[in-house]
Amino acid sequence: MAKGTSSHWVTGVSEISAEEIYIRGYAMSDLVGLVPFPGIAYLLIRGDLPTPGQARMMDVILSSILDYGLQKSGTVAARAVVSVNPVMTAGLGAGVLAAGEHALSPEDTGRFISETFAHWKASGKTMDQAADELVGELRAAKRRVPGFGHQVFRYVDPRSAKLKKLAQEQHVWGEANEWYEAVHRAFQKASDKPELVLNDVGMLASIMVQMGFTPSEMCGLAITSTLPGLIAHISEELQSGVRNRMVPDSHTEYETARRELGPALRKAGW
């Protein structure tokens, strides 16, 4: 049966032969020790060897979300799970599943940037004109712009400023970043909120769009970035000796009222 039919898996990611392991066609024995982990990660996901600047920016991306705080839902989920199933893989699975639209993942922001950037490129309009029109449409529809705003920072998010500086230094800054910043300026102007920042998740997403990553790949990279912190929390929980973590009554509010079963059964037709 020919390759490419429904009966075959087809992959260009890696190959294991009798004499060597190949990553995107390159011998692993050649890569290891010569190309750093972020560079090999880029190669695996994007399919091509990165430039030194792209590899450096991958290192920045993978270092930007490292802290996985105890207050985060994914950390709580991981620690609760290993308190009853004390193995690392169970905790990692729980923590990874907690990444999504409302926590950790830049996927939603990346999708917004990718789609609106492509629409602007096809429109023939100037960047600022298209950004003003887009913001007008979003505000009329009462839609939020992902990646804007922070509960503490005003005017400038220092994390975003650092990411932009590094991206420019490594020559991975481009039109996608400029477009997203134009949308940010247009939103500040239209909402009369000059203090509204472009936050670190937004900046990371715009850089990853510029580097060619898909929104779903961005989610995977964000999760990869958090794994060391998640491993540390799981290890700490495993060593604590605490079994079966439960939500304490001091953190629980009960809304149920006591009811009699007999009358309820008769009313339901039993």
Rank of each mutant, 00 (worst) to 15 (best):
A264E: 15
G53S: 08
A98T: 03
Q210Y: 03
G100K: 11
S123D: 06
F213Y: 08
W120G: 02
G174D: 01
L227E: 07
G93A: 15
G149Q: 08
L49D: 00
A18C: 03
I223P: 02
H251N: 15
V152D: 10
K189L: 12
L196R: 05
I234P: 04
S105P: 05
G91F: 09
A122L: 08
K164G: 00
Q151D: 10
L97G: 12
T109Y: 03
L44V: 14
P106E: 14
K162N: 08
C219R: 11
P194K: 07
M57V: 10
E15F: 03
A140G: 12
E115D: 15
V32D: 08
R144G: 07
P36H: 08
I45A: 04
H150N: 13
E15Q: 14
A90L: 05
L34V: 12
Q188G: 05
A205W: 02
G124T: 10
K267W: 07
A140E: 14
L230A: 10
G269R: 03
Q71I: 08
A94G: 03
A257W: 05
E260L: 14
S250W: 09
A140V: 04
L134F: 03
E255Q: 07
G39C: 10
E237P: 05
I21M: 12
G74E: 06
Q71C: 09
S64C: 09
K125W: 02
K189I: 13
E255S: 14
T116W: 00
I23D: 02
W179M: 00
T214Q: 10
P228S: 09
L134G: 03
V145W: 04
A264Q: 12
R111M: 11
V242E: 15
D30W: 13
L104E: 03
A190G: 10
P146A: 10
I23F: 12
V13A: 13
I21S: 12
G47P: 06
Q170R: 08
K142D: 14
S160L: 05
K267C: 02
V145L: 10
A77N: 12
G25C: 09
D108T: 10
K189V: 13
I40M: 15
A80Y: 07
P194A: 11
